[in-house]
C-alpha cells in the first residue's frame, strides 16, 4: 500500500505541474454561428411477437415449441454506421460501443456523441457484439460492462449477449437457459482448444432511413424481437444443446444465423 501511495504522489505532482503549465484561463472562443449538424438517439425496446416483451416469469412458446420465459437480455452493439448515397460513416468512433441491459434503465436510451451532418440518411447498421479486432479483454473496467467479460481461455473479450431465462423440460421441470454469444472455440479431437471463431455479425436494418435536422436530436426506436432469436432460418430448440452454449460453437453459429432479422427500426 505504501509503495503505491508514493508512486501515486509522484505521478500526481508531475501531472499537476504539467497541467498547471499547460492550462490557463483563456476566454471561451466565439460560439459557432449556425450549426449544420444534429444528433441521433436510439431508444431500445423489446417485443415478443406482436406484444411488448414481459421480462420475468411470463410464459412464451418459441418456434420449436419450447415453453420459456426470459429474465433479461444484456448485449453490446458496436460500429454503428449510417449510410447516405452509398457512403458509410461509422459513428461513435471514440467509444465505439454501447451496452444495453434491460435491467439498467439508462442503458435503454443512447444519444450518440457525434455531430451528424444534417440531411436524409438511407439506413443504418451495426455490429452485434464486437468483431475480433475490437473485442479486447480488459477494455472495460466498470460495471455493468465488466460483468460481460468472456474468459480468455474461451477466446477473451466480452459476451456479445446474455439472454437468460428458463424453459420447461420434458420432465416438467423449469430449468435455466443461458443464450450467450461470444467468441467460439475450435476443439481438436482430444478436446483441446486450437483456435477461436469471431461470432460477431453485422446487422443491416431494412427501412431504417431517417432525417437529421440541424440543432435537433432525431429519436428512433431500435426494437429487438426476442422471439426471432429462436425462429429463422433455424428453429432453435433449447433441448438440442442444453441451454448453456458458450463452449458449443455449433449452437452459437445458430444464434448468429438467426440474428439477421431480430432488430428493426420503428419511427
Amino acid at each position: 500500500m505504501m509503495n503505491l501511495l508514493n508512486y501515486k504522489t509522484i505521478i500526481l505532482i508531475v501531472l499537476a505541474a504539467i497541467l498547471s503549465l499547460a492550462s490557463s484561463c483563456e476566454k471561451d472562443p466565439e460560439p459557432d454561428p449556425q450549426p449544420t449538424t444534429g444528433k441521433l438517439q436510439l431508444n431500445f425496446d423489446f417485443y415478443n411477437e406482436a406484444d411488448p416483451m414481459e421480462w420475468g416469469i411470463k410464459k412464451y412458446t418459441n418456434a420449436a415449441g419450447n415453453e420459456y420465459n426470459a429474465y433479461y437480455v444484456k448485449f453490446f452493439i458496436s460500429r454503428l454506421t449510417i449510410f447516405k448515397d452509398g457512403e458509410a460513416t461509422v459513428l461513435n468512433k471514440f467509444h465505439n460501443s454501447h451496452y444495453v441491459g434491460t435491467d439498467v434503465a439508462p442503458s435503454l436510451q443512447w444519444t450518440i456523441a457525434d455531430d451528424i451532418e444534417k440531411g436524409g440518411y438511407d439506413s443504418l447498421s451495426f455490429t452485434f457484439g464486437f468483431n475480433d479486432e475490437d473485442n479486447e479483454s480488459f477494455m472495460f473496467v466498470n460495471q455493468p460492462e465488466v460483468n460481460m467479460f468472456w474468459p480468455e481461455e474461451l477466446g477473451g473479450g466480452y459476451h456479445a449477449m446474455q439472454l437468460d431465462g428458463k424453459w420447461r423440460l420434458s420432465n416438467d421441470s423449469l430449468t435455466g437457459f443461458n443464450f450467450h454469444l461470444g467468441p467460439g472455440q475450435v476443439y481438436n479431437t482430444s478436446g483441446d482448444i486450437t483456435g477461436f471463431i469471431d461470432n460477431s455479425f453485422i446487422v443491416s436494418i431494412p427501412s431504417s432511413d431517417f432525417v437529421i435536422n440541424e440543432g435537433n436530436t432525431t429519436s428512433l426506436i431500435l426494437r429487438m424481437h426476442v422471439d426471432k432469436w429462436f425462429t429463422s432460418p433455424i428453429e432453435y430448440d433449447h433441448n438440442t444443446y442444453g441451454g448453456s452454449i458458450m463452449e458449443i460453437q455449433e449452437a452459437m453459429e445458430k444464434v448468429v444465423m438467426n440474428g439477421w432479422d431480430v432488430f428493426s427500426i420503428v419511427k
Binding site: 460495471q143 467479460f149 474468459p151 481461455e153 446474455q162 463452449e247
Partner: peptide, 25 residues
Amino acid sequence: VLFQTEEGADCFHCHGSVGNPLFTT
C-alpha cells in the same frame, strides 16, 4: 479456469472474473 468456464464450475457469471476484479457483480 474452472471458476470462469461454463463447462467447468461456472462461478464467474455471478461472482466476477479476471475481467471484473471486484469479484462481485
